[in-house]
Amino acid sequence: MEKALVVIGLKKSYGDTVAVNNLNLEVCKGEVFGLLGHNGAGKSTSIECILGVKKPDSGEIQLLGKNPVKDRKQLFEKVGVQFQQSNYQDRITVAEICEATHSLYKAPSDWKKLLQVFGLGELKRKTVSELSGGERQRLSVLLALVPNPELVFLDELTTGLDTKARRDAWRYLELLKSQGMTIFLTSHYMDEVEALCDRICILKKGSIIAMGKVRELIDKSPYDSLEDAYLWYTGEEGAVNESAYHLA
């Protein structure tokens, strides 16, 4: 299988704190890959190093066979990114940010259609600051898809979305996957991970503690749900009861 992403020996520390410790992973083209772990496990740092936004202490990254720093301009024609937190220019409207993003690419998707898909068509004239948390989140995912990318990074794609919006987003990502898009995502929702991901990698304190197909990882654990298996892998089964809250 052709590789969309290859990470070899990625390391990144902030002062004495090791954020990512010797990360090795490969993502095939057309695959949906989930990077899991608690807050602070190193997911966002890994993504930012992979994208060349942060400089890793050591390690090698190949993104669509290219170097994210040296081949930046070429590469980001085909790579879409949604950061965990997105800020926009003051007083910019939804239509303006979409149009501006659209203008940056040679062969982008139709942003007006995307607005409909993400249920934001009615909000075109509103400023981004007037949107609710869920609407902003949908907008940030939408903007990552504007380049019509071969590979898209979605960092906590459905945090803050209501149930219906989540399901709509999943359905759309499944459609994109069926068209051959590679998706690299992080999520705290195990139902989402189970519904979307082919393979997952679980990080704990910057190191990989488990990686493989979703089914395989569940089978290797003493549990039969991904949520329980995940907590077992991260060594915190005791917290299962509390974690039930987070599903809602």
């Binding site: 994208l51 997105s86 940056l104 380049p147």
Partner: peptide, 17 residues
């Protein structure tokens, strides 16, 4: 201001120079 608000960071992962 755009750098401070991480708006430039978003442009960093686009083809813009």
């Amino acid at each position: 201001d755009y750098r401070h608000k991480k708006i430039l960071k978003r442009f960093r992962v686009t083809p813009v120079s």
